[in-house]
Design a binder for these strands. Structure first.
Length: 484
RNA sequence: CGGGGUGUAGCUCAGUUUGGCUAGAGCACUUGGUUUGGGACCAAGGGGUCGCAAGUUCGAGUCCUGUCACCCCGACCA
C-alpha cells in the first residue's frame, strides 16, 4: 500500500488503481475491495458477497414491484432442460448450444437423455404453456422468474460475464402479434424507466439489428448505456418472438370464433450484469458511488471520538432516529481513525456521510458530506430529517444529470468508415451512422475493427442515405460502439 | 483451442540463477496502551503441507519429470 501526501491534511492511500491508468483493473479493484463479490473454486462463477447482494436485493424489490403493477406473476421453472426440448426451435438451439453445460449422470444413474442446465428458459415456458393454454380466456399469460442461469463463457469477468449469473426472465403469451409487440415495448420502457430513475443510468432505447438479435426472436429491443471508458453495455433486453416458438412447440389456443391459432410470445430480462453498469457509470478514483435509491446503506454515521461516551450516545440516538424513519443507515463505532472511516465510507459509495463530534453536540448540529460532489454542510439538528431527504433526492438527481452529460458528450455522428472508427476510438463512445442493414457488412465491420451495432435508435437524427460502412443505400440509422 | 506468463501467509511479493541450518518482508488480523474533525503510533503475538505427485541428493521453495490451477494476448462470446 502506497501513501501520497496530497496536502497537509488529506492523505490518499492507493488501494484502487487509477481509473485513467487501467480501467479494467480499476473495475476489478472496486469489486474486490468493496466486497461486492469474490471468486469461487469454479472458474467464472462468483460468490456474491452481502454488500453486492444487498444491491441486487434492492434491484429485485423495486423491479418486482413494477412488474406486479402490470399484472406479471412470479413462478419457478426447473433448472434442467432435456436436450430434446432445447433443440425444438432451430435458431434458438444454434445460438445457445456452444455455451451449454450438461448433466449426464445423476447419482449412479447414467441418464438416457442428457440435461442442459438452463442458459435461458424459453423452452421450459413453452413446454408448460403448451399444456396450460387452451382458450383465449387463458391469455395473456404474464409470468416471470428470478433465478440463476448458466452459460459456459470462455472469458469471464465479475458481474459483466460470469458462467452462472442471476437475473429475472419474463415470458409472456398473447393472442395477437400486435399485443405481443406492444408488450415487448412496454417491458422495454419499464426497464428504461427503472434504469434511469432508480439506478441513475441514462439509456438509449432501440432495436437490435438482425445480426445482434436474440436467437429465435423476431425482433429484439434493447436499452444500451455507456460506461466511463466509452464502451457500451447492454443493460436489458426485450424480445418479440412472434409465433416462432409457438409453431416449434405446437402451442395453440381456441379464439373467440372457435378457431385454433398459435400464440404470440415475448421474453425479457435484466441480470446482475447491471451491477457492473452501476460501478462503471458512477464510480471514480475514490471507489464506488451509489445512487441513494439503490444503495444498501444510504447514510453512514461517523462519531468522531468513539472513546467519548456522550459522543457515542448521541450518534446512536441519531442512528435509531433515522432507522425508525425508514432510511438505510450504518454507524461506524470501530476504533479506526476518523480519516480511515471517511475514506472507507467513500470507497463503498455510501451517498451521504454524517459526522458527529463533540463540537457538533455542543452546537446542536451535525456535518453532512456528500459522496458525489464532496460538499460539506453544517446542519442544525432541528432541520435534520428534511435536510437528509433533500440531499438524498439531490444526489440521485445530480448523479443522473452527470451521467447524462457524459453520454451526450460521447455520441458523435459519422458518414464514412474512417470517420466512424476514428470517432469511436478518439472520443471513445457511441457514433450514429447510416447502415445498409446487410448482415455481411456488419460482420465485416466487427471482424476488421471490433465495432458492433449497438442498436437502431428510436430517435433519429441523421438525414443522409448512404451506408457509412460500405457506401451502399442505407436502410436505417444505427448507433455503433464497442461493447462489453 | 493457439502463443506467453505465474503458482511461497488472507493480500502484494522477496528468496529459485549458484540446492544448505528453524522460510522472510509489508499490509491485513489478535491483545494491551496512547490517540482520534481526512487513511494514527508503540509494544507483544497468531498465521505456511512453498499448487499437487513422483524423482535426483546426505540435504529440495530452489534441480529433473509429470500434472493441475489461474492470469494476459488471440479466437469465441444471445
Amino acid at each position: 500500500m502506497e501513501t501520497i501526501a496530497n496536502d497537509k491534511k488529506k492523505v490518499i492511500v492507493k488501494e484502487i488503481t487509477n481509473i485513467d491508468e487501467d480501467f479494467a483493473k480499476w473495475y476489478t479493484d472496486i469489486v474486490r475491495k468493496t466486497r461486492l463479490c469474490d471468486y469461487s473454486s469454479v472458474k467464472g462463477c462468483m460468490i456474491i458477497e452481502p454488500y453486492g447482494y444487498a444491491i441486487w436485493e434492492n434491484i429485485m424489490r423495486e423491479l418486482d414491484n413494477r412488474f406486479k403493477k402490470i399484472s406479471v406473476k412470479n413462478c419457478a421453472m426447473p433448472m434442467f432442460i432435456p436436450e430434446s426440448l432445447l433443440t425444438k426451435e432451430k435458431e434458438h438451439v444454434e445460438g445457445f448450444s456452444p455455451e451449454c453445460a450438461w448433466v449426464t449422470v445423476g447419482g449412479d444413474e447414467v441418464l438416457e437423455e442428457r440435461l442442459c442446465v438452463r442458459p435461458t428458459s424459453e423452452t421450459l415456458f413453452c413446454d408448460y404453456y403448451k399444456d396450460v393454454i387452451k382458450s383465449y380466456r387463458d391469455l395473456p399469460k404474464l409470468l416471470n422468474q428470478w433465478v440463476s442461469v448458466v452459460r459456459w463463457e470462455k472469458t469471464t469477468r465479475p458481474f459483466l460475464r460470469s458462467r452462472e449469473f442471476y437475473w429475472q426472465e419474463g415470458h409472456t403469451a398473447h393472442q395477437s402479434i400486435e399485443e405481443a409487440k406492444d408488450f415487448t415495448i412496454k417491458m422495454l420502457n419499464t426497464y428504461a424507466d427503472f434504469i434511469e430513475n432508480f439506478l441513475a443510468i441514462p439509456v438509449i432505447k432501440g432495436k437490435k439489428t438482425e445480426k445482434e438479435k436474440f436467437a429465435g426472436a423476431l425482433e429484439t429491443y434493447t436499452v444500451e448505456s455507456i460506461m466511463r471508458d466509452g464502451k457500451a453495455l447492454q443493460s436489458a433486453t426485450s424480445h418479440n418472438f412472434g409465433d416462432g416458438f409457438a409453431k416449434a412447440f405446437g402451442i395453440k389456443f381456441l379464439d373467440k370464433n372457435n378457431e385454433l391459432s398459435y400464440i404470440y410470445q415475448t421474453s425479457w430480462g435484466l441480470s446482475t450484469r447491471i451491477i457492473g453498469a452501476i460501478i462503471m457509470v458512477h464510480g471514480d478514483n475514490e471507489g464506488l458511488k451509489l445512487p441513494p435509491k439503490v444503495a444498501p446503506t444510504q447514510i453512514m454515521i461517523i462519531p468522531i471520538k468513539v472513546k467519548d461516551e456522550n459522543n457515542v450516545k448521541k450518534a446512536n440516538e441519531l442512528y435509531n432516529l433515522l432507522i425508525n424513519l425508514g432510511f438505510r443507515v450504518e454507524i461506524d463505532l470501530t476504533d479506526k481513525s476518523p480519516g480511515f472511516k471517511f475514506a472507507d465510507s467513500e470507497m463503498r459509495g455510501i451517498p451521504l456521510r454524517i459526522e458527529i463530534g463533540l463540537k457538533d453536540i455542543e452546537n446542536e448540529q451535525v456535518v453532512f458530506v456528500r459522496r458525489d460532489n464532496h460538499q460539506k454542510r453544517i446542519i442544525k439538528t432541528i432541520n435534520l430529517v428534511e435536510s437528509i431527504k433533500y440531499e438524498l433526492d439531490d444526489i440521485q438527481k445530480s448523479m443522473f444529470d452527470d451521467a447524462k452529460r457524459f453520454l451526450n458528450s460521447h455520441i458523435d455522428v459519422a458518414t464514412n468508415l474512417k470517420e466512424l472508427v476514428d470517432k469511436i476510438d478518439k472520443s471513445s463512445g457511441f457514433v450514429r451512422a447510416m447502415h445498409c442493414g446487410e448482415k455481411e457488412c456488419e460482420e465485416k465491420l466487427k471482424n476488421d475493427t471490433g465495432i458492433t451495432a449497438r442498436c437502431i435508435p428510436f430517435d433519429k437524427v441523421l438525414s443522409n442515405n448512404k451506408c457509412a460502412v460500405c457506401g451502399r443505400d442505407a436502410k436505417y440509422e444505427v448507433i455503433f460502439g464497442r461493447a462489453y
